[in-house]
Structures are given as C-alpha cells and as structure tokens.
C-alpha cells in the first residue's frame, strides 16, 4: 500500500530524516512515536509533499515516485491519494463546516455540488456533527473543529489518511471524542499513519508502531513488541519519560528499565489511559 524507501530530508544544515524505510499495508494503522524533533511530523509531511524529501522513493498504491526528481503531476497524484489531519485543524476559516468538507470534492474531484453536499453531510453525521453544518470554524470548539478536519479528510475517500498529532492541541476532555472517531475509521478499514503521543490509542488501535529518534526509526513492531518487549535503550527511555509525565501506561516496566538514568517508576496496571 505505502512503501517509503530510504527517505532523507534536511532543513538547511539540519538533517532531519536519515534514511527512513517504512511499509504500511492496506487497512493498517501505523503509529509513529518519538520525542519532539525526531522527524515524525516531517516524515508524514514528506508523504504528501508538504515537505519535499531530498532523496528516496515513495510508493502509494500503484504510484511510485522518486523524491529527488518530483514533478508537479506526481505531487498532484500523491496528494490525490492522501489527505491529512493537522494538529491545528487548519479548517478553511472562510468556509462553513459543510463547505470545508465539500471543498475538495467539488474543486478537486469535480463532483456535482448536490452530490458533494450529500456525501459531506454524511461524513459530518458520522463524526457526530450533524447539527453543525452551517457553523464557521470560529463558532466551533477545538474538538468539533478537529472532527470536521477528519470528516474533510475521509470525504475525499483517500487511500490513506495522515494524522499529524491530531489531539495535541485539544483540551483533555475532548481528546476522547476525537480518538473515538479515529478508532471508528480504523474499524472501517481505513489505512492510517498517525503521529501521536496517545500511548493508549497506539496500544489499542495500531497494528504497527514505529519509534523514531534523531531522524531514524529506532525500533518498530507490533504494539506488544514495542511497548512490552522493548529492545532499544532509547525507546525504553522515551517510554519511561512518557509514563512518568503522562498518566500511567500499561504494562510492567521492562527488565532493566530501572537501570536507565533518570527513569522514574513505571506506572503499573493495564490500560489506565482511559479518557
């Protein structure tokens, strides 16, 4: 479905991605974890060419592009196969909720307005905003805006939806609602690549978890492998930090975790992270 091969990206002299390989199968949910500055958002943005990778190949479905020599039609083709949900929602501020969802359908896919409106309304219903069609983003709460953002992404019927820290700007009490919508999408078989700090979501929904640090994928595997049978020291240190800062995370501390300097006591018990 998606195959990234040896993706490199630098901003000026700062090498952000150092040869990333990643594979996502159809219907899979892949979660990218890692400390800030590890390159996870940049990687996500390279997939739909919001950032242009310096080197490497991207394959989505039957389309394969060499990022070193991207042409406009290829960028357009990549963007037709993907949509993105942003940390700051980025809803079109001059459009109502319904128009936000319709915009791409009408302008990009050339679907007649009437059909587009019906499809968009169905998407908004699905994310629980059936009563907010004619509200502008400024009249919606953060959680509602993000749900419109997800509706906008799924309306385009993309091959994959990219989520760039979709809950990081939200008040804690509305995070659950947005995650529920994402879980629903995953259940419906949508292919998703998700950058998030929501460990419970990763454990529960992801088929595959990749931990990034310093521009490389340090460790990847099933959630059970990465969270419970952590192999790499850097992953372990990161998970320890997240557990200490955030609410308690599942699983006993991996053996040897206590040996890591600065590592606090691991949170005990199983999925405690219910919001």
């Amino acid at each position: 479905m998606i195959k990234l091969d040896d993706i490199w990206k630098a901003f000026h002299h700062n090498q952000v991605l150092k040869g990333i390989d990643l594979e996502v199968r159809k219907g899979e949910v892949v979660v990218l974890l890692g400390p800030s500055g590890s390159g996870k958002s940049t990687l996500l943005r390279c997939i739909n060419c919001l950032e242009r990778a310096d080197k490497g190949t991207i394959r989505i479905g039957d389309l394969e592009v060499d990022t070193a020599q991207l042409r406009k039609p290829q960028i357009a083709a990549l963007r037709r196969k993907t949509t993105m949900v942003f940390q700051n929602y980025n809803l079109f501020r001059n459009k109502t909720a319904l128009e936000n969802v319709m915009e791409g359908l009408v302008v990009v896919q050339g679907i007649p307005v009437k059909v587009a409106r019906e499809r968009s309304a169905a998407c908004l219903d699905k994310v629980g905003l059936g009563d907010r069609f004619n509200h502008f983003p400024s009249q919606l709460s953060g959680g509602q805006q993000q749900r419109v953002g997800i509706a906008r992404a799924m309306a385009m019927d993309p091959e994959v939806i990219l989520f760039d820290e979709p809950t990081s700007s939200l008040d804690p009490e509305v995070v659950g609602g947005v995650l529920d919508v994402m879980k629903g999408l995953a259940r419906d078989g949508m292919t998703m690549v998700v950058v998030t700090h929501e460990m419970a979501f990763a454990r529960e929904v992801a088929n595959h978890v990749a931990f990034m640090d310093g521009g490389v994928i340090v460790e990847e595997g099933t959630p059970a492998q990465v969270f419970e049978r952590t192999r790499e020291l850097r992953t372990r240190a990161f998970l320890q930090r997240v557990r200490r800062d955030g609410p308690a995370l599942a699983g006993p501390a991996p053996a040897g975790a206590a040996a890591i300097p600065g590592a606090g006591p691991a949170g005990g018990g199983l999925p405690a992270l219910q919001r």
């Binding site: 739909n48 060419c49 919001l50 357009a76 963007r79 037709r80 993907t82 949509t83 993105m84 942003f86 700051n88 980025n90 809803l91 079109f92 501020r93 915009e103 791409g104 302008v107 990009v108 896919q109 906008r152 992404a153 385009m156």
Partner: peptide, 17 residues
C-alpha cells in the same frame, strides 16, 4: 496562517486554487 494553504494542498488543490 500558512496552515490554510497547507490544508488546501492536502485535499489536492493547486496553489492557485
């Protein structure tokens, strides 16, 4: 906000659109 243009591009619009 430059996110407005990014969102436009992410649904497949051209920069001009």
């Amino acid at each position: 906000d430059k996110g407005q243009m990014e969102a436009s591009l992410s649904v497949g619009m051209s920069s001009l659109q």
